[in-house]
Design a binder for these strands. Sequence first.
DNA 1: ATGGATATCCCCAAATACCAGTAGAAAAAA
DNA 2: TTTTTTCTACTGGTATTTGGGGATATCCAT
Lengths: 213, 213
Amino acid sequence: MFKQHNKIQVALVDDHPTLMEGLKAILVSNLNVDIAGCFVTGQDMLNYLGLNRVDIVLLDIALPDINGIALCQEIKKKAPDTVILVFSNHSERSIIMQTIQNGASGYLLKNTSLDELRSSIHDVLEGKVVFSKEVQEIISRPSKNELQGPPRLTRREKQVIELLSEGKTSLRIAEELSVSALTIDTHRRNLMQKFAVKNTAELIKAAMLHRLI
Amino acid sequence: MFKQHNKIQVALVDDHPTLMEGLKAILVSNLNVDIAGCFVTGQDMLNYLGLNRVDIVLLDIALPDINGIALCQEIKKKAPDTVILVFSNHSERSIIMQTIQNGASGYLLKNTSLDELRSSIHDVLEGKVVFSKEVQEIISRPSKNELQGPPRLTRREKQVIELLSEGKTSLRIAEELSVSALTIDTHRRNLMQKFAVKNTAELIKAAMLHRLI
DNA sequence: ATGGATATCCCCAAATACCAGTAGAAAAAA
DNA sequence: TTTTTTCTACTGGTATTTGGGGATATCCAT
């Protein structure tokens, strides 16, 4: 009733004009959609999103102003119903995971076939979560690095790092675990060695990246 | 040549015997597969996996010995080609994301329809990544909680916290940003106030929880 | 233009963390 | 039951952070 456009409203965000032209052409000629807007920066896109309906955003990870992952977050914050389909060259697993983490409904590599592109757009609009073939492989094959990444921590070390992350000092932790503060110091040193980091800040970061906290 | 079984080898891991029976029945009557084994504990499953070929594992998140997320990791470490399909009651977004993070190729809720179950198994075996309808919705709709909440940081503060998380000291950061170390100290104090934390460890943790790093 | 937030700089003292090495006892794994 | 790992504790340092104060200049918005 209040909709001004019956067609699906698509927004593109990418800083490659040529590629964007191609996308545009493919979209209008193959799917019954409106190109609501093409944006080079994330900010432009967000501004537009504040005022207009957008059903689906096709976006690149590499943008001039903010990175695509943060942009996903912003988009979902502003318009939870807008579907995000990432269209990018980045094939690193962690990047893929992060975009999904932040609300993207799909991830395609830029070398995706036209067929795949068409069907993906169709599918995400129906609420599906889609990945292009290559991306599926990447997801299914976590690298050795990502799997073996977290150093094996002993029970004690896990306790210590947990308490550390709660902002407690060695002394407090020592009291809590009823051991000497010197012992806690040793645990900390061992932890830092295992993670190959220089101080607690980095240690906590590493541990969280590996989801050990 | 060395394969003793031509049929797809399926392993089930779950601590609900009844449900497992049902699964078994559905699988053998609908798909041309062998039930290689049914396991109640993750350890049993891993032991079996060390000695036998398993093409696909259907697994629950809640297990008596280890949690399903860690098990995904172990499975992928031991047998990268074994496909993991999670079949669980847990509908929390973070759990879903973590299983995928750790190598699962799909996630179904236990109330999934038989059709969906059949087609999902079929699809993951072809290398696809599949989610049941409900799961897709969960993925596409990150909770407010996950998106919102972080204190507003100034540009400088973001820089500082970023560098802090890389294990740099105030002095180093000061050099890098060409300001006095005292300034950095102030930023740190302000950051800690904003996050209402006591020290750097907790600060990094909080910042990471809010995905500011 | 007056407040508010930001960014910068300063001092001091106590608390805490970090570095490097060693080593015995307890627990777990082979 | 060996062997290995983990937990524990110590010495003796240096470096860094933290918490308590303040202060000035700029930019931004009401």
